[in-house]
Each structure stands twice: as structure tokens, then as C-alpha cells.
Design a binder for these strands. Structure first.
Length: 178
DNA sequence: CGCTTTTGACCCGCGC
DNA sequence: GCGCGGGTCAAAAGCG
């Protein structure tokens, strides 16, 4: 039983035609909510990139309970761009290594009136010195829409031998407003 | 055994 | 001033 399932860590079995992922949505089967991005070449994902209307200014103030004083450095602008994904997968594996550090149940800001709740997960890049964060927001009611928000930019190469996700990254660069 | 996820608590800004 | 909403920490549990 060397190949019980395609859960082999090797990516060699992945055909290099990953562009299909963006072009062929048909023929999918929603048999796997556990489908992973890199393992689901046939996921039906309708990606739509949303540019934030404004550069979000997130404060990097330390949360130290000690009276560090009010740092006025909170005007550090951080590029924050989000895109909406319609797929069964929650977290899009972009090749980086993320570590989850929090989760909150927040209200969906797209439908504030409906009081729809979202499960927002907070991830952080584990690379040393790379403080890129990302949030993954998903409606608890309807898991088909996932909003991923990236904050910051990676200063280190990926080169993670997962699979040919670079193709998808290239697609992202087409839509990415920056 | 080391790293990641989970989960409640804490903190902080903002609105009332 | 207080309560609420959102972001982060950190300890413990989980997993390979």
C-alpha cells in the first residue's frame, strides 16, 4: 500500500497543467470538503479579486500591557489586499508556511444587516522576519464563499516544492492591482 | 519530540 | 466611563 490515496507528499503525480484549475470548473464533484488546494486540481473555484478601496492602515503597536505609551507610529501603511474565492477550500495554499494564531467569530461586513456570522482565522507566515499576516473569512452559513485577506509582502522566496502553484500565482499577478 | 492548532482571555480603539 | 467588536497572546491539546 504505497499509494493508498493521492495523499502522497510528493507532488510528482501532479500534472503540470495547473492552469486547468482556473479554466475548468466543470466536472467537479463536491465530494470533498476536505479538499486541499494543492491536491484538488479539479476544484471548482471561481476566484474574484477585490481591490481594497483604500490602503488599510494597520497599527503595529505592541500589545504589551505595560505602559509603553501611545506610539504614534500607527500610521504605518500596510498594503492589504483581499480576494474572494468561491470554493470549498478555506485556506488557499500559496506556497508559504502559515501558522494559525487566532480565530474569531465576527459579523460579515458584507451583510451587516443580516447579522451573518463569519469565522475568521488569522494566520502568520512562519518565516523568520517575515511578518506577513493573512485572514481567512468564511461565512458559517454558507461556506462556498471565502474571503482571504493578505497583509504585508513576503520578502523571501517561496521555493516550496509543493506543486506548480506558481502558475496560479502568475494568474494572481494578472489580477493583482499591485 | 517538535511544531501546529485550538481556544479562552486579554487588550485596545471606538461609539454611545 | 462603559460596553462591544475585533485583533493577538499564550497555554494546552493534537498530530505526524
Amino acid at each position: 500500500m504505497f499509494f493508498p490515496i493521492s495523499s502522497s507528499p510528493s507532488e510528482a503525480n501532479m500534472a503540470p497543467n495547473s492552469c486547468q484549475a482556473f479554466n475548468s470548473f466543470h466536472g467537479d464533484s463536491s465530494n470533498g470538503l476536505l479538499l486541499d488546494w494543492k491536491s484538488s486540481s479539479s476544484r471548482n473555484a471561481e476566484n474574484r479579486f477585490i481591490q481594497k478601496p483604500e490602503v488599510e492602515e494597520t497599527d503595529n503597536q505592541m500589545m504589551k500591557p505595560s505602559s509603553v505609551g501611545k506610539q504614534k507610529e500607527k500610521k504605518i501603511r500596510k498594503q492589504r489586499y483581499a480576494f474572494e474565492t468561491r470554493s470549498q477550500v478555506d485556506v488557499l495554499d500559496d506556497g508559504y508556511h502559515w501558522r494559525k494564531y487566532g480565530q474569531k467569530a465576527v459579523k460579515d461586513n458584507k451583510f451587516p444587516s443580516t447579522n451573518f456570522a463569519c469565522n475568521r482565522s488569522y494566520y502568520r507566515c512562519t518565516h523568520q522576519g517575515c511578518n506577513v499576516k493573512k485572514q481567512v473569512q468564511r461565512l458559517t452559513k454558507d461556506e462556498s464563499v471565502v474571503v482571504t485577506t493578505y497583509e504585508g509582502m513576503h520578502t523571501h522566496p517561496i521555493h516550496k516544492p509543493t506543486d506548480n502553484f506558481e502558475h496560479i500565482l502568475n494568474q494572481m499577478h494578472i489580477y493583482k492591482p499591485f
